[in-house]
Write a protein that binds this DNA or RNA. Structure first.
Lengths: 242, 242
DNA sequence: TATAAAATCGACGTTTTATCGGAAAATATT
DNA sequence: AATATTTTCCGATAAAACGTCGATTTTATA
């Protein structure tokens, strides 16, 4: 091997390391950004008020999950939170406003939890698998929240430009990112529209979660989520090898 | 070939014809039942009243699609229909009641239209493909209706036991039926949970429709729906050949 | 502990939902 | 055709839920 060839080889290696590093940092940046997004604009000054805010959110989650958003009354939520109706209005200007804020903290919690667990996974394939599995499992663990998000808010939230909408957009962006990396890694067909692939993945898992929320079937959502996630990814891999 | 063998062969043939015929009639029965399900319990006696009912439904569809169900007011719908608020209550006992009735007629129309188109398809594979493609295409053709159904009602309707819920259950049952037939036909993996397969199919297509309703992307929903449906079925077929 | 800011609440006005009794229109009966 | 009966429609109004405001209490801070 002459010098020129050696240098060229070395350059290629360096370049590929550079790319890998870029990708890695892009991934970290994405998760960083997403985990930090959900933050209420108005910060309460007193401890008491912070407690009140939390009580409102907890109460709202319970009442919304029990009665459904449209049937829930502000007065009930306030009573459940142990405050007066007018105090609640000090925190949220309408029921809609409140409904859009309730799922946020759990969503942030999910992202954080995923971020921690994903650290040990290096390939996009592993990361995507974990993401889908954790989505289902998180819904099982927080059924009230999931009921609210998946059955009442998810599709319709997009109509208006809320903080929650951005968070759900983030949820999609993560998958899109991993699908594109999957193409780079060679296990996702490059000639498929990545948005279509994302729709397929999210749709499949969400439909599974929705079915569970409604009928508590399949009995074991964690197992079913894993099965579905593995199946979806295997299907994508099958598309490549031909 | 001796007589006994001949008889045996003949019996087998007869038996298999019998099965095929049973399956065919099961399919027809299913579609028949489904197409005829959506019917209001209370039938109006006067023509004028039937017109009024139609005007209410049309007005409700427009207003709901424009403002969203929760923001829509009964008074607006009544005005749009050219009747008084109290007359509207003569027809529907609440806004919720109305919201659940609005999508029904289109859904029945879809089933009917599918029934007509599916007649020429003999295999479950072709029938399923048509079903998924037509779902997407029907949403494109009736965007207001689709917006109401997919973004506002579909997930949450299951909470209560309504006529609409049964219709949406029917929508699922058709797919489940075809998936099971697909196993019999040999192009769907028999070791997969058919409910999981159904979730995957519905989820993928619905997610595509939802994305289109929200962002009008992909631009051409008919084409994207066809692509998605073909891809999903190809994926199922890929699972078998290994 | 005095003070200003923040948070809470009860009273009350507004909007939306829902009911009711009778008028008007359509249909049935003679 | 005239009248009785049923069906449909609507104005008035009650009931319920939403949302506001000023007075009062609590908290943070100096």
């Amino acid at each position: 091997m002459d010098l020129e060839a050696f240098v060229a080889t070395k350059e290629v290696v360096v370049e590929s390391e550079q790319i890998a590093s870029d990708t890695a940092s892009a991934w970290d940046n994405l998760l960083e950004e997403i985990a930090h997004r959900p933050k209420r604009a108005t910060e309460r000054k007193q401890d008491r008020a912070k407690r009140t805010e939390q009580q409102i959110l907890n109460a709202a989650l319970r009442v919304f999950a029990r009665d459904g958003i449209s049937r829930s009354r502000i007065a009930d939520i306030a009573a459940e939170a142990g405050i007066s109706t007018s105090t609640l209005y000090e925190y949220y200007k309408s029921k809609e406003d409140l409904a859009y804020d309730v799922p946020l903290s759990h969503l942030a919690d999910f992202f954080e939890s995923y971020h921690a667990n994903a650290a040990s996974r290096t390939s996009a394939r592993e990361r995507l698998l974990l993401y889908l599995v954790m989505s289902a499992d998180y819904a099982r663990e927080h059924a009230e929240w999931a009921r609210l998000l998946y059955l009442e808010i998810w599709p319709s939230v997009f109509v208006s430009d809320t903080e929650l909408r951005h968070s759900i957009d983030d949820f999609t962006r993560v998958i899109l990112f991993l699908v594109k990396e999957g193409v780079a890694e060679g296990w996702v067909a490059p000639d498929r529209n990545p948005y279509e692939t994302v729709a397929l993945l999210i749709g499949g898992v969400n439909q599974l979660i929705i079915t569970w929320l409604l009928y508590r079937k399949p009995k074991n959502l964690t197992r079913a989520g894993t099965e579905m996630a593995e199946r979806l990814i295997a299907m994508l891999e099958n598309e490549v090898r031909r």
